[in-house]
Design a protein around this nucleic acid. Structure first.
Lengths: 170, 170
DNA sequence: CAAGATACGTCAACATGACTGACGTATCTC
DNA sequence: GAGATACGTCAGTCATGTTGACGTATCTTG
């Protein structure tokens, strides 16, 4: 199996010829890389009595201030009941605040309070430390490869949503 | 801000100079890439009445037949009580079988049954489809970048464990 | 060989974060 | 004015993790 499949991974080759080993390596690195990165902020979250679900909401609200509940639901791909609980807790504890939509008053626009922004910034700082050090040790060329492969893992139908997060508030 | 920070990402530069935007892009792609990849097998798992936890166990047992319970615990980084429930279900439903350790009879060696191997192969096939197509569309150079960055996300103390998964049964 | 460490199992209670299903209200659109 | 939409909420359930305590078989070491 070795020779044929080893050469078959070049761009354009049929996916069917990819070596099992290379795929397993990707699965494992993705699993460990992702879990270890998220582990980095668990302690900080725990001291605030919050969980990962709260962080995800906080993160996207920080990323797109004025986000609606519906938009956040699409990003998180969970039910409104699940999200409702998380948002209620974040609001009760004054990490976020809401305002009625301007164009459509049925909508609820989500923003971070100063307290929420402080927390998100601290969590982001810790994620940045980890990710920056991985970027630096791998080099810029590796970073763009990293991005390209991950983009390819996102189904076509979701890509616009993900790409739209970028660049509109930085 | 653009020029200085854009050049500061080269290997060896201080992580402090990384642009926030590049870090957020990595966080988001990692989140969406990872969740969408795992989504790929949820339907198949559901038809078997199994969850993600079962798949993770199945995966590592397939990867390293004869793995001990203790080794699997380290890989999964969960408590023995949590793992115990998962392994019991997998064993009851004849996806795995166990044998006493050869050198140390306190250990329990884990293997897939034929039924378990069939299921793991089918799940792997679906993951491979997704990952292969991402690899192919990104190109081989991107794939090694992808690997390098992810390796950098894994703490030094865990790296040996992850690397040791490779190459000993393929 | 006895004492202690180790590998594994198990009982019980609980937390988190997801789910389904049903129903309510305000607001927008046609 | 009728229907669709955005959001909220009550209630019950499930999957997967946690802590703490305790039991047994087996290995290791003084």
């Amino acid at each position: 199996m070795t020779d044929v499949s080893r050469t078959a991974i070049s761009p354009g080759a049929s996916p069917l010829f990819l070596r099992e080993d290379e795929v397993r390596r990707g699965i494992e690195l993705l699993y460990f890389g992702y879990t270890r990165l998220t582990n980095a902020i668990d302690r900080e979250l725990a001291t605030q009595g919050l969980g990962r679900a709260h962080h995800r909401a906080l993160y996207f609200i920080a990323r797109q201030p004025g986000l609606t509940v519906g938009e956040l639901l699409k990003l998180l791909a969970i039910t409104k009941q699940s999200l409702g609980r998380v948002l209620k807790e974040l609001q009760d504890r004054q990490f976020i605040l809401t305002s009625p939509g301007v164009l459509d008053r049925r909508q609820k626009l989500l923003r971070l309070t100063e307290k929420g922004a402080d927390l998100e910034a601290e969590l982001f700082r810790q994620l940045r430390q980890r990710l920056s050090s991985a970027y630096v040790s791998a080099g810029q060329e590796s970073v763009s490869g990293f991005w390209h492969v991950l983009e390819g893992l996102i189904p076509e139908s979701d890509r616009k949503m993900v790409f739209d997060l970028r660049g509109d508030n930085l």
